[in-house]
């Protein structure tokens, strides 16, 4: 297969970037999208040019590191898949493919397709945890958990922190990511004691990082590779409202 690629090249956060054209040939349909970029980079290195910088690690759809905005869609055209799990057979021979980084004020560009998602870590540090020091735990089965709640918590906990929801959103809102963590912990009894504090602190940090507001468009849900649902955002709104207006919790 043969493709025309238009790839965003940008030296660093302080220089302007632009789309650069590349053509690539002899691509096998069983290659993953990242393996196709590997081949392109191999060609570039052999020519003495700077290869395209991009983030990746597990290549199994679980670490959340890969992050390409492909022809107008976060992680490309395949629903429920990360960039590393996208295969070239999803494209047609001769296609022109645009490859860009996640774009959001809170995710500054490092180089080419690589962005800084440290804001997500800081949101977790603000409250996305249960304060249980090592050694304090009681026997695990002393705390039965309703199976349905456990399953729902697991659905939300499946978020890989990739940031596609932010990239897909016209407001660059991080609500889906934040709501996934708040939901995971709010659905479990272990999360109860810090429930109010968590919702307030995580939302405050999200705002401080410069993410946009949620206007319920749903683009995040459509592009999320782990199919995190919008109901989580509704739950976050409830959690937040309870904490802000119906409790005396302050952060």
């Amino acid at each position: 297969m043969k493709f025309n690629l238009k790839v965003w090249r940008q030296k660093n956060a302080n220089t302007a970037g632009k789309l650069v054209d590349y053509t690539i040939d002899q691509i096998n349909e069983d290659m993953s999208f990242l393996e196709m970029v590997d081949v392109l980079n191999d060609n570039l290195v052999r020519k003495g040019e700077d290869p395209i910088a991009f983030d990746h690690d597990c290549r199994e759809g679980i670490c959340g590191m890969c992050s390409m905005y492909i022809s107008g869609r976060a992680h490309g055209p395949q629903h429920g898949a990360t960039t590393c799990q996208l295969y070239m057979r999803k494209f047609k021979d001769g296609d022109t493919i645009y490859v860009e980084p996640w774009r959001a004020r809170a995710f500054p560009i490092v180089k080419d397709l690589v962005v800084d998602r440290g804001a997500f870590d800081r949101i977790i540090a603000a409250g996305g945890f249960v304060s249980a020091n090592t050694g304090q735990a009681q026997d695990a089965n002393n705390l039965p958990v309703n199976k349905d709640d456990a399953e729902k918590a697991m659905d939300a906990a499946a978020c890989i922190g990739c940031g596609a929801c932010v990239a897909a959103c016209k407001n660059a809102s991080a609500m889906l990511f934040v709501s996934a963590k708040v939901s995971h912990l709010a659905l479990l009894p272990q999360g109860e004691p810090e429930r109010n504090r968590r919702a307030l602190a995580m939302v405050a940090q999200m705002d401080a990082e410069g993410f946009g507001n949620c206007t319920n468009t749903g683009a995040c849900e459509a592009e999320c590779p782990k199919e995190i649902k919008l109901v989580n955002i509704a739950r976050l709104n409830r959690e937040y409202a309870n904490a802000a207006f119906a409790s005396e919790t302050q952060i």
Partner: peptide
């Protein structure tokens, strides 16, 4: 034995049976 206790206390959503046990 302590590991499972610790992880559950942190909110790790392990698979459960209908009775709520792990």
């Amino acid at each position: 034995v302590n590991i499972i206790d610790q992880c559950v206390a942190q909110g790790v959503p392990f698979a459960r049976e209908y009775g709520g046990m792990l």
